Computed example of a mutant assay.
Amino acid sequence: MRLGFIGAGNMAQAMIGGILAKEIVKKEDIIASAATQNTIDKVAKEFGINVTLDNREVAKADIVFLAVKPFYYEEVIDGIKDVVDEKQLIISVAAGKSVEWVENAFGGKKKIVRIMPNTPALVGEAVTAICPNANITDGEKQEIVELIASFGLAQIVSEKIMDAVIAVSGSSPAYVFMFIEAMADAAVAEGMPRVQAYQFAAQSVLGSAKMVLETGKHPGELKDMVCSPSGTTIEAVKVLEEKGFRSSIIEAMSACADKSRNM
Rank of each mutant, 00 (worst) to 15 (best):
M1N: 09
A8N: 04
G9C: 10
N10Y: 12
M11C: 12
A12G: 13
A12K: 13
A14V: 08
G17P: 01
E23C: 08
K27T: 11
E28C: 06
S33G: 10
T39Y: 05
G48V: 10
L53D: 12
L53P: 09
L53M: 08
D54S: 06
D54P: 03
E57C: 05
K60R: 11
D62G: 14
D62A: 14
F65Y: 11
L66A: 01
P70I: 12
P70A: 06
F71S: 14
I77N: 00
G79K: 07
I80A: 03
I80S: 00
V83R: 11
V83Y: 08
K87W: 10
Q88G: 00
Q88N: 02
L89N: 02
I90H: 07
I91Y: 08
K97V: 15
V99D: 03
E100W: 06
W101F: 02
E103Q: 09
E103L: 06
N104I: 04
G108N: 01
K109W: 10
T119P: 02
E125R: 13
A126N: 01
V127R: 05
A129I: 00
N133F: 05
E140R: 06
E140L: 08
Q142D: 15
I144V: 15
E146N: 14
E146R: 14
A149M: 05
G152R: 04
Q155G: 00
I156V: 15
I161P: 03
D163R: 12
S169L: 00
G170L: 01
P173Q: 01
V176Y: 00
F179K: 00
F179W: 03
E181C: 08
M183S: 03
M183G: 01
E190I: 00
P193N: 04
V195Y: 01
Q196T: 12
Q196V: 14
Q199M: 00
F200M: 15
A201D: 09
A201M: 03
S208D: 02
K210I: 00
T215R: 02
E221T: 15
T232S: 10
K238F: 05
E241Y: 09
E241C: 06
E242G: 12
S247D: 15
S247Q: 13
S248I: 01
S248M: 04
A255C: 13
K259I: 15
S260C: 15
S260M: 11
N262L: 14
